[in-house]
């Protein structure tokens, strides 16, 4: 049984049919990536999984249980945690408070402190900025904080929405290295990216999304070698 599964999910913005029957699955321990161009419905898919949007038809299952009727905070409680597009750091909370709010549902203080240490291991920069307001951080630091904040919730599956957006190439590489590490330490990841090259480099499997529909699904390796993907998303040929 997949950890997370979407079955024929249709999502609308008013009358706009944004997702036209998305089906995908994420197995425990995988990095699965969802690539596609701007407006393909990648973020909409993540927002629908998180409960910020309601699918009109279809099912979303987490460990075999339907979650598509749950409010966002209940979905987070199950361990489906999103790092939203554009990072969405709380600008007037300090770095520490941003991390603490990531652990909002947890009561185990000692474990929370341990996880915060783990976040500082991954992102030493955040420790240096501990009492600074989130809004004063650079884009890269904010991305680190957004990922750290999500890790504070002990995700069973981490949904990452465009972690490379607006970052310098060297930072993108660093962030993707860390995403790989997080996965290696046991967290399942669903990664949405426009930067298909980077995403396919660290993912196990991938889906290609075009105007609300999945047009290709394969292993990352096969997708990298696929002519269409190379042409449309990797800038080859």
């Amino acid at each position: 049984m997949p950890l997370l599964e979407l079955k024929n999910v249709h999502t609308y913005y008013g009358n706009i049919h944004a997702l036209k029957g998305i089906s995908l699955s994420v197995e425990e321990g995988e990095i699965v990536t969802l690539i596609g161009s701007n407006g393909a419905g990648k973020s909409t898919t993540l927002r629908t999984i998180s409960g910020l949007l309601r699918p009109r038809y279809g099912e979303i299952l987490f460990k075999g249980e339907r979650i598509d009727h749950l409010p966002p905070h209940k979905i987070v409680e199950l361990g489906v945690i999103q790092v939203p597009e554009g990072r969405r750091i709380f600008p007037r909370l300090t770095v520490r408070e941003n991390l603490e709010i990531g652990a909002f549902l947890r009561k185990d203080k000692a474990e929370i402190a341990r996880d915060m240490e783990r976040v500082f291991h991954l992102f030493p920069r955040l420790y240096e900025r501990l009492n600074q307001r989130g809004g004063t951080l650079s884009g890269g630091e904010q991305q680190m904080l957004a990922i750290g904040r999500a890790l504070m919730g002990r995700p069973r599956v981490l949904l990452l929405d465009e972690p490379s957006m607006g970052l310098a190439p060297v930072l993108v590489e660093q962030i993707f290295g860390i995403i790989s590490d997080i996965n290696a330490q046991g967290t399942t990841i669903l990664l949405v990216e426009q930067n298909a090259l980077m995403a396919l480099a660290i993912a196990h499997r991938g889906y290609v999304l075009q105007t609300g529909e999945i047009v290709l699904a394969d292993t990352a390796q096969a997708l990298r070698e696929n002519k269409l993907v190379q042409h449309a998303y990797l800038g080859v040929g």
């Binding site: 998180s50 409960g51 910020l52 409010p71 966002p72 905070h73 987070v76 409680e77 945690i81 999103q82 939203p84 969405r88 709380f90 600008p91 007037r92 909370l93 408070e97 603490e100 709010i101 990531g102 909002f104 549902l105 904040r149 919730g153």
Partner: peptide, 24 residues
């Protein structure tokens, strides 16, 4: 307090606060 942090988080960004598990 934790509740106070949650109130400030909701004030700053409601959808993202719900992604933290806060019952908005």
């Amino acid at each position: 307090t934790k509740l106070g942090t949650a109130i400030r988080a909701v004030a700053q960004d409601r959808p993202t606060a719900s992604l933290m598990g806060i019952d908005v």
